[in-house]
Design a protein around this nucleic acid. Structure first.
Lengths: 248, 248
DNA sequence: TCCCCATTTATTGTCGGACAATAATTGGCG
DNA sequence: CGCCAATTATTGTCCGACAATAAATGGGGA
């Protein structure tokens, strides 16, 4: 029986068995004993290995799955070790932000600091591919000035590309969930204001700065861009101190 | 039957029933129909309500629980709606960072931008209580120059207090998991180098700046402080480009 | 009246087993 | 050697059961 195979973690007393199974498997994964891509034994096998009922194993799997440590390939039955995806994290942070009634101001302020930081990193590290993608994005944005929906989507993409260009996955991980909640508000602003020109202008300046690998300018324009958005938010008569809402 | 009570979310075809139950409950919570603090019906009741077996409900609960939307009060059986705790998020981000083999450099760089931002916010908003706590922390740090372990713990606390003082929960949420992975490295540096004096010096400058509500100075010293740490990391002969490891 | 404790009830954690649907594997055939 | 059909493995869901224990209840006593 593998009941005590959870080396390196402390076992809370009265811990339910299914959580013991979780810790056991989690430890194997985090410590590298089971590597990303490895297949995980079938539920019945695990049940036998751990000496517990299959239902118990299933509950453990639900937990691991939710943590993104384990996943079934689309439409498949086999279970594999995986690294958590951005979305795994993002969704949970999003829920946390909403339920804690974090205000739009807090979100905006975070972006106010995060985005310029990402721009600085990107200026140092952006490659030609991403630069081209950014260029293309700006072109499409120019062509979509009238279509609010596309405008918002293109803006999301613009910032996402920069985030990737930063080559800092930790910063990206922080940014992602916020941007998700940030941008719905964006749509509101855009449908109330005609801010397309200003947006394109800022994006162009940022793009140019990145093209010149100029971190100072990139940061500066990004900062202006984000600060500008806040003005738009207020001009559109939206309350910046109200909690972020959940959409869909 | 509440099978289609998941208004507002798209139902993937062939979605397992337990995930349908998850979405249904999640929607109730996120939309505010069920409010934080509300008691959630017993498993048998839910099973009856949804017209499914209790095992199925239990799997759904494991998922919700993992997302931090639902929790049993310590040692209790009753299930309540809750807002996700920092730790709920933090643990998952930590796992993600490790399994994606994110480097210490990425982590450091994130802090390099996050901490100064937090310092700026804190300079604007810190209250006398937190200022006093910070003061006390610095005093204790001065007295613990020889005890590496305490030194690290006090440093963690110092930065945590500033994070709280920022009054920006979104930024705090971003910072938390990184600091968790950041600081083990800290211990290594401290046990190899005698950097206590430098640490206290920086903390004092930051404290003073915050006391004067001077965001510029606060940011500047925080920045120096973090940059300085990187030098320590390299002086201690640690590889900044190696992936962050998992401890315990 | 109101609080405390013993008793009853409700609820969870775990187990055993079953079955249909379907993904994965195997084996035979061209 | 590759493709398709038959076989096997595996999951998703269900039924039912039971011990442990938390929660609710209902009297006594202060």
């Amino acid at each position: 029986m593998l009941a005590d195979s959870n080396a390196g973690t402390v076992a809370p007393k009265n811990e339910p068995v299914y959580r013991m199974v979780v810790r056991s498997i989690q430890t194997k994964i985090m410590s590298g004993e089971w590597v990303v891509g490895d297949r995980i034994p079938a539920e019945t096998t695990l049940a036998a290995d751990f000496g517990v009922h299959r239902s118990t194993v299933r509950e453990a799997i639900r937990v691991l799955e939710q943590n993104g440590l384990v996943r079934r390939h689309d439409g498949g039955k086999l279970l594999y070790v995986t690294a958590p995806r951005e979305a795994d994290i993002s969704d949970k942070v999003t829920a946390a932000i909403v339920l804690h009634e974090i205000t739009f101001f807090e979100l905006w302020e975070s972006m106010r600091y995060l985005e310029p930081a990402l721009a600085v990193c990107a200026a140092d590290r952006i490659d030609d591919d991403l630069l081209a993608a950014l260029q293309a994005n700006v072109e499409r944005t120019k062509a979509a000035l009238e279509d609010k929906q596309s405008l918002v989507e293109l803006d999301i993409e613009f910032h996402q590309i920069i985030a990737r260009a930063s080559r800092n996955r930790a910063l990206q991980l922080s940014r992602e969930p916020m941007s998700q909640l940030f941008y719905p508000a964006f749509l509101k602003v855009f449908s109330r204001l005609n801010a397309g020109e200003r947006l394109v202008f800022a994006h162009e300046r940022i793009l140019q700065a990145l093209g010149r690998r100029d971190p100072v300018e990139a940061r500066s324009w990004m900062e202006k861009h984000i600060v500008d958005f806040r003005r738009g938010y207020e001009l559109a008569n939206l309350d910046i101190d109200s909690p972020v809402a959940w959409l869909k």
